[in-house]
Design a protein around this nucleic acid. Sequence first.
DNA 1: GTACCTGCAAAGCTTTTGCAACTGG
DNA 2: CCAGTTGCAAAAGCTTTGCAGGTAC
Lengths: 133, 133
Amino acid sequence: MLKKQNHRMTRQRKVILEELKKVKTHPGADEIYAMVRKRIPRISLGTVYRNLVVLSELKEIQTIEHVGTLKRFDGTPENHYHIRCVKCGRLDDAPMEIETYLEKKVRRYTDYAVVGHRLEFIGHCSECAKGCL
Amino acid sequence: MLKKQNHRMTRQRKVILEELKKVKTHPGADEIYAMVRKRIPRISLGTVYRNLVVLSELKEIQTIEHVGTLKRFDGTPENHYHIRCVKCGRLDDAPMEIETYLEKKVRRYTDYAVVGHRLEFIGHCSECAKGCL
DNA sequence: GTACCTGCAAAGCTTTTGCAACTGG
DNA sequence: CCAGTTGCAAAAGCTTTGCAGGTAC
């Protein structure tokens, strides 16, 4: 049922991957577009996007801040963790206390002035888990 | 320099807040729009967005998946944590090992089938911290 | 040769904004 | 009264997609 995909290593794909491996920060698609354009001036933004998807599927790269990019709103203003269903996108509160020591731990090794953290669990909600049986 | 804001509790604002407090999950703006429209049919989406911003500022609600909603890409496919600068949006790897026990901990209290987690620290990068002096 | 890719441009979505009319305090 | 709000519609991002021509293998 899954169509087999024979991915080709085109020049565009290769350069995108190289540029992405080269930098330490995590550029957005537009920044990648700018970097790659220095080497392939006529590449299109669409090509960049399509290749980022393919490279993610191939596990060559990682897409951060995935799935739904739309914002969600929470009626309870206190900080707390969330748990998200990969299948249906549902978002619930995670039944767990805030782990403040995580910030202490990272502070020892970074030069950022850490002011907070966000933790999100990923899984299948009880509804969607049924379908996985 | 900061202009004083005298926020009014309009009917729209009130209903949006009520509806948001009412639900357990975390709806997106479009869902909130749908919920509120049942009570105020002629409310506009723009009003919903503007009020969500105001309510966030007033700390009445919380905006999840904040700041940059644009995706970012990472050349290293292994899972690791990130640290984000609130000021400039820069994203770096957090120098810290994966805390696998976090998942074990939350599994005890949730009916989700947990498959992973994402942790992101928030702070000021060394560049932006300079400006805070 | 042909399935996979590319560039280009148009379309899609979510979110923001300009504006004139309206309203809470 | 009048700064803050609203509805409407247009604009503004970022991302996806249709298409016809190109290319890796």
